[in-house]
Simulated assay, not measured.
Amino acid sequence: MIRIDRDSPTRDDVHLLLSEHLADMFATSPAESVHALDHSALSAPPITFWTAREEGDLLGCGALKLLDSPTGPARHGEIKSMRTAATARGRGVATLMLRHILDHARARNLEHVYLETGTEDYFAPARRLYARHGFTECPPFADYVLDPNSVFMKLGL
């Protein structure tokens, strides 16, 4: 049975998965268009980080970053570092993680969840996953700027 729990991005097996994630991002996108976070950035207080595991084996990870709100509690979040281990692809891990993150966002009473992903073919499965769950394209959000290598998406909760 696959379990999703809060975890540390600095844990050895997670660190390795995140390093693979970053390497793939830099291999498929220009450096100035890579917005993936490393394990230390994913440890920051406004970020909640989860892993999916089965019998202790790491299957994937994902995070929710709360976006700043100058007038009170955060009302918006951003999905970060969604990644499925190569050995677990095709098993629905990304769907389980996405649902978990969205459930957490709803429990926090967030109004919207945003994300940034790439325009390259490599990112097509991710874009399809998010579209299947109701995400639609939107203008850049937070500190992002228009970038021909980025697709910005949001979901109202």
Rank of each mutant, 00 (worst) to 15 (best):
E137Y: 01
H35T: 09
S8R: 13
S150I: 03
E32G: 01
V14G: 00
E111Q: 12
R11Q: 15
F135H: 02
T84C: 14
D147T: 10
S150L: 02
L64M: 10
H21T: 06
R6N: 08
L67Y: 05
M97S: 11
P148S: 10
T84V: 15
S150Q: 03
T87K: 14
N109D: 13
V113D: 04
T95D: 07
L59S: 05
A88D: 08
A85T: 03
A94W: 10
G72K: 06
H133M: 01
G92F: 13
R83C: 14
A85Y: 04
L66Q: 06
T95V: 09
L110F: 00
K154M: 03
G92N: 09
V113L: 03
E55K: 13
P125I: 09
P148G: 04
S150N: 05
T48M: 08
T51G: 06
R99A: 02
D57Q: 15
S33T: 12
D68C: 11
H21V: 01
D103V: 01
D5W: 04
P46V: 01
D12T: 14
P148I: 07
A44V: 00
E111G: 03
E32S: 07
E20S: 08
A131T: 05
P73A: 14
P46L: 05
S33A: 15
R108Y: 03
Y144E: 07
T71N: 12
F152T: 07
S40E: 15
D5V: 14
P73E: 12
M82C: 09
A52F: 05
A36P: 00
G92R: 07
K65H: 06
D57H: 12
R53H: 03
R99S: 03
M97T: 14
G56V: 09
C61K: 04
A142R: 02
T51F: 07
F152I: 06
P148W: 06
E78Q: 11
Y114I: 00
L16R: 14
K80A: 04
I101N: 02
A41K: 13
A85C: 04
